[in-house]
Amino acid sequence: MISTKVNLAGVELKNPVMVASGTFGSGAEFSEFFDLSGLGAVVTKGVANVPWPGNPAPRIAETPSGMLNAIGLQNPGIDVFVKRDLPFLADYDTKVIVNVCGHSTEEYLEVVERLADEPVVSMLEINISCPNVKEGGIAFGTSAKAVEDITKAVKARAKQPVIMKLSPNVTDITEMARAAEAGGADCLSMINTITGMKIDIERQTFAIANKTGGLSGPAIRPVAVRMVYQTAQAVRIPIIGMGGITCAEDAIEFLLAGATAVSVGTASFNDPFTAMNVVTGIEAYMTRHHVADINDLIGIVK
């Protein structure tokens, strides 16, 4: 018997595989392909206090082994989300992690408070890498002081364990990770997309309307593995690793580097079954390597 159970800040997942925020909606579309109960957790698209329209199109561009996106966090707002998406997810035997976005501390807190009494929600993931925020235009996620402050503010109101989702667009990721830990974060998730740009040379303009977009997919995987590894050496709280995971082998790299769980994002666009294939592939790897408990793999490469 092998055990794939992992524990994230007191929340037990049946396996360490989840889906990355924004690549899976609230699961409804993917549930046409497979049973969401096979996943360790579903992480929803970012939800704000009110509906956000997002950015103009084109919102995405394909790049070598990856893509750029500037969706701009289009979402229906917390009211619709609580009435429509949470009851849908409640029907599955998987953990529900809600990704929260906002332009200001107050906006984050409004969503966090609305979710406090929703038993379906196991954890909150706070996206502090939005490009448009109040504080002098600096993202919440790129200054250690701001990371600590927003983490503290969220922790003071949240009823569920709090995951801080870190931006890789910083010089030293461990500084942000320590700031989140100091603010009381229960868990970290990383990495969000890396800011990039693509120019359409025929039209002689930007490939996406927002000019810049976030790079994701296998192209960023080595950066993500490195950041997870460095962060695992710097903090005690668990890490959810992501960035370009396409198969079990990719996921295991993250576990060995120190991630307790992993998220599949962009790869689901190439094949909607990717996350489920990662689940079964991890079991096969464990059997092949005679590993009985998945926790024996976490962070063993030092």
Binding site: G54, I60, M67, N69, I71
Partner: peptide, 14 residues
């Protein structure tokens, strides 16, 4: 429009 998921989940193609 440019598409990423093609199934309505990612909100790329609005």
């Amino acid at each position: 429009e440019k598409m990423a998921c093609g199934i309505g989940a990612c909100l790329a193609c609005v």
